[in-house]
Amino acid sequence: MWNVQGAGKQAFMATLREIVRINNPSVIVLVETYLSGEKAQRICDRVGYSGQTRVEAQGFSGGIWLFWKREEVTVTPLEYHGQHLTVEIEKLGEAPWLFSAVYASPDSSIRRDLWRELENARQNFSGPWLLTGDFNETRSMDERHGVGGSEMQRRCINFSNWIEENRLIDLGFYGPKHTWSRGETEATFKSARLDRFMANEEWHLKFEDAVVKHLPRACSDHCPIILSTNGFAPIPASLKPFRFQAAWITHEKFEEFMKNNWNNSTPLIPFLSEFALKLKDWNKVIFHNIFRKKAELWARLEGVQQCLSNKRLNHLIVLEKQLRQEMENVLH
């Protein structure tokens, strides 16, 4: 799930491709997309997933896009609403469950309509139910920096009560505490945990190993969030398949490498195995391993954003901005 507020189109697509490459999700949710109609469809088609549906943006606000791999899951849309998209998800051989993708309006009076709509969804469905999205609320003042006052405290209490009244369970998270931030100085910097995954007890029991992770923010005001129903397990390096990287072609020394190492006179299959080893070595030594660079930047961003969730420090705000710009350059 990702609120793409503040993301430029080119940076958004580059970051989304990187997230998909690393995590390979079966279902993707994008909220606050701002786009509708033909412009939205052109971008949706570029995402490359076989299944897609969406709630159109209202003017230049809102918008919820849902993508899924039809070869892995069946998605049946049930309700389209300006602030939520509710569908039924079914994996081959498993019982279906309800899924609501949410973008809550910043307007509190409009947001109340969403709470009523979601309550109706709960009453009309007795099985497992998962919700995710930007709720534009926090459960407590501990989930915020830079915004206070009695009105905000009242909102926190009301949102927490609504969660409890509807018997929802916050699935928690790993990673930086806050999912949204804005501001480039200590005086203007604000952050909060506006985005989350929640579920009813039936869903929680069905997927008791589910884990949520806040990924570092790169090109948006909000961080991407990924949920794995089976937990996260690293892929051993020995099991990762060799893949040709299109970025290699852009390197000034790649053509020279090809001329020196390609051989048409030997049997193709054994030659390709040998050539792949040489290419991996060239990638590490000459190309400087762009994937390692990206991994280092993701890790540094996560660390800085974790610190900013706890305390606003000007040098960290400046560093985060530099790292985000560097990541954008690397992804392009």
Rank of each mutant, 00 (worst) to 15 (best):
N166H: 06
A104H: 00
V55W: 00
P270Q: 08
K278F: 05
R17I: 05
L16Y: 00
S109H: 11
F254R: 01
G149F: 08
E90Q: 15
I19T: 06
I290A: 13
L35R: 08
M13G: 04
F207G: 03
S140L: 03
E274F: 09
E32S: 09
P176I: 02
R144D: 02
I317S: 04
E255Q: 14
Q52E: 11
V285C: 08
E165V: 07
A40I: 07
L279A: 10
F232L: 07
I249T: 12
T132I: 03
E296Y: 05
E164N: 13
A247H: 11
F244Q: 10
L279R: 00
L66K: 00
A57F: 00
S26F: 09
T188I: 05
E296A: 12
A101F: 01
I163Y: 02
F271N: 04
E90V: 12
L168E: 00
G148A: 13
F67D: 01
A40G: 04
I249C: 14
L98K: 06
L131Y: 00
K293H: 12
M152Q: 13
W180E: 01
E94Q: 14
F244K: 08
E256F: 02
H288P: 01
N289E: 11
I269P: 00
Q245N: 09
K284I: 06
L98Y: 04
I157C: 09
V212Q: 07
G148E: 10
C307V: 13
I19H: 03
H81N: 15
E72Y: 07
T266A: 13
V27M: 10
L331G: 03
F257P: 00
Q325D: 13
T74F: 12
G149S: 11
I286D: 08
F189E: 04
R70E: 15
F67M: 06
F271R: 00
R54T: 08
F291D: 15
E18L: 11
W68T: 01
L331C: 04
N166S: 05
M141S: 11
F99I: 03
R116F: 12
E208I: 09
E117V: 10
G37R: 10
S36W: 11
W2Q: 01
L316P: 00
A210Y: 05
G6E: 04
P234T: 09
Q153V: 05
A199S: 12
I163L: 15
Q10W: 06
E38M: 12
G6T: 06
T76E: 15
L316H: 10
N120Q: 13
A210H: 11
T188V: 11
R111A: 10
